[in-house]
Design a protein around this nucleic acid. Structure first.
Length: 617
RNA sequence: GCCGACAUAGCUCAGUGGUCAGAGCGGCUGUUUUGUAAACAGCGGGUCGUGGGUUCAAAUCCCUCUGUCGGCUCCA
């Protein structure tokens, strides 16, 4: 058997590892109550609840030792079938209250009522629940409600490692009690496990929070507050350069920049529908006269008011507004982390007001912008999600189901025309006002991140009565498209920093060239300064390190700051006006090693302007 | 928000009930005038995150708050 290549078998290995974990836990804490123990990406977990006991990572050694014993015992996994009644008495006898709850749901409703937990996770298929029978697996003296499949015996599980412990709500509902979730990773071989752990180590090294501090891009302050990053000059340069690129792409297809205040009367959000759905997540402000305002959590309602400020002819459409600006959302404190999730979010937002018949052409233009941006930033692998409403739970969405189906179809046709079947449908992932196409980018170490989005909105035009006068002189309802290319700039930067490991291409690097003086003599310092001025004139971000340190040390500092070009300036350069720049190792090797300084600076400036130096990742 | 862990100098960390709390790097000053990844010396720098409690004695034990991390829940 080729255990290492068979993904189904790997799935079984991981699932069996979860059972071995549970076996070990039950041996160490016989009073433990078990929740569910499914396979997840790269491993498995098991939810446990031990009355009066909090398991900690210090217990991992003992648990892993016990797991190894179970493995050494080569216990066979034996499948059996029980009726619901038998299963219930089993759960009662073993004081497995969580299993009992699942079984009771099955008995009462004939299915697991909780939509939020996949029946497969619980170890039973819907067919099985209909026939009121469930399967069990037994290894040694441990028996568990489980659909399987498993490996033949406990010694066939491969390599695993317990990773962490975390709280998790029973059945994923925040009104339920919390259990302790023990996470493990598992692979067919020790080698694959080691490779995975090395990948984690690599991810840790390029963590944007670490690099953000090391490269002096952004900071947080306890006084300012959680989730409110402060951008340093270097970080701001990077962020602005990326935004400038997006806006140039947009302007080529007719976008116009607008700008809006950051607060608004609450009436705006009552009309847009946001108040009803998100009022608890708004930062709210009461004026001294008692009027209620809110920090804007999004920009589209403001933009609608620019559109609505005058009568529009069909001849004016599409009208395209762009606006890179911050929105504010009172996210729960526990959700915040680095730049990935913040309370002040910079969106490179854009809205198109157009007729229904113009949707396709406009979406395709947006698609091109997104593609150009992500190819240039070195995310060469994009994937696509059609985010739709959930027909079975329409209470969270505005508008008629028929209209939803129509708009979903409209977006789906565009997706098909662009990528054939290379997309997936995210049911229930739509915005409350309309379906969207979400873009996912794969980073340099294989992780996927949601980035850009194109959203089709027929609800806000309705709420704000947005229309144009058509060819027949009638008022015609229009639709809106929402599009963010970076999405949240903070989140994009978190992904981009980790993708590049801080080695930004020349065009957006916070510092493009660093000049290093070999000594402190006046002639050297004067020459360095004149080079810096020349570079500035060419629009380069160029700095000078004139400190009284060894050249070796200054080079090291420049390397660690990941500056693309480092130029040592001393007698030789002054005499010949030629430089041999030190080029950051990930970049393409330049053909000319020694170049006239003037030409070199010009060539860097051109390179920066043309955005041709992609990330090498 | 919930569960758990954590918080010592600008950074990385040592110190777990007992004299004035330590190291390396960074910073500053001096010497040196340096040639492609760390010259040498000296000097600063911390009411041990905050507020309370236990104790003869707290960085060390307990509680509160703030923040960070790992998850859960949420995500326009």
């Amino acid at each position: 058997m080729s255990a290492t290549t068979d993904t189904d078998y790997l799935h079984s290995m991981r699932h069996s590892s979860a059972h071995i974990l549970a076996t070990a836990v039950m041996r160490l804490w016989p009073e433990a109550r078990l929740g569910v123990g499914p396979v997840v990406e790269n491993g498995f977990y098991y939810d446990i609840d031990i009355p009066g006991v909090t398991v900690s990572e210090d217990d991992f050694e003992a648990i892993e030792a016990e797991m190894k014993k179970v493995i050494a015992e080569k216990q066979e996994f034996i499948k059996s079938t029980k009726s619901i009644a038998e299963a219930l008495s089993w759960s009662k006898n073993n004081k497995q209250v969580y299993k009992e709850e699942l079984l009771n749901d099955l008995k009462r409703a004939g299915t697991t009522v909780a939509k939020d937990l996949d029946p497969e996770t619980l170890g039973m298929s819907s067919e099985e629940s209909r026939v009121s029978e469930v399967t069990f697996y037994t290894n040694g003296d441990f028996t568990d409600l489980c659909r399987g499949p498993h490996v033949e015996s406990t010694d066939k599980v491969g390599a695993f490692k317990l990773m962490r412990i975390a709280g998790a709500y029973w059945r994923g509902k925040d009104t339920n009690p919390q259990m302790q979730r023990l996470y493990g990773v598992a692979f067919a071989t020790e080698k694959e496990l080691r490779i995975y752990l090395e990948m984690l180590e690599e991810a840790r090294k390029r963590d944007h929070r670490k690099l953000g501090a090391e490269l002096d891009l952004f900071v947080f302050s306890d006084l300012v507050g959680q989730g409110l990053p402060l951008w340093t000059p270097r970080g701001t340069a990077l962020k602005n350069e990326l935004d400038r690129f997006v806006q140039e792409l947009r302007d080529e297809v007719g976008f116009e920049q607008v700008s809006i205040p950051h607060i608004t009367k609450k009436e705006l959000y009552e009309a847009s529908g946001h108040w009803a759905k998100f009022k608890d997540e708004l930062f709210r402000i009461t004026t001294r006269e008692g009027h209620e305002f809110a920090m804007k959590p999004m920009n589209c309602p403001h933009h609608t008011q620019i559109y609505a400020s005058q009568p529009r002819s069909y001849r004016d459409l599409p009208i395209r507004y762009r606006d890179t600006t911050m929105v504010y959302r009172d996210e729960q404190s526990g959700e915040l982390g680095g730049l990935s999730r913040v309370r002040g979010i910079t969106q490179d937002d854009a809205h198109i007001f157009c007729r229904t018949g113009q949707v396709q052409q406009e979406v395709l233009k947006l698609w091109d912008i997104i593609e150009a941006f992500y190819m240039t930033t070195g995310f060469t692998e994009l994937s696509y999600r059609l985010s739709t409403h959930d027909p079975e739970r329409m209470d969270g969405y505005s508008g008629e189901p028929a209209k939803w189906n129509e708009t979903v179809e409209q977006l789906e046709n565009i997706l098909k025309s662009k990528v054939d079947t290379n997309y997936y449908v995210g049911v229930g992932e739509a915005a409350f006002y309309g379906p969207k196409i979400d873009f996912m980018a794969k980073d340099a170490i294989g992780r996927e991140h949601q980035v850009a989005t194109i959203q089709l909105d027929f609800n806000q035009p309705e709420g704000f009565k947005l229309s144009c006068t058509n060819e027949q002189g009638e008022e015609e309802r229009i639709v809106m498209l929402h599009c963010a290319v970076m999405g949240s700039q903070e989140r994009f930067l978190s992904v981009y920093i980790e993708h590049t490991a801080g080695k930004f291409p020349v065009w957006c690097a916070p510092e493009q060239i660093r000049l290093l003086s070999v000594n402190q003599e006046d002639t050297t310092l004067y020459f360095v300064e004149s080079l810096r001025q020349q570079g500035k004139k060419l629009g380069l971000r160029i700095t000078a390190d004139n400190s009284n340190e060894s050249v070796g040390k200054k080079i090291r500092a420049s390397e660690m700051s990941k500056v693309p070009y480092t130029i040592v300036v001393g007698e030789k350069e002054i005499a010949t006006s030629e430089v041999t720049p030190r080029i950051r190792s990930d970049m393409q090797v330049q053909e000319a090693v020694a170049m006239k300084i003037e030409n070199f600076l010009k060539s860097v400036a051109n390179e920066a302007a043309s955005r041709t130096t992609h990330s090498s990742m």
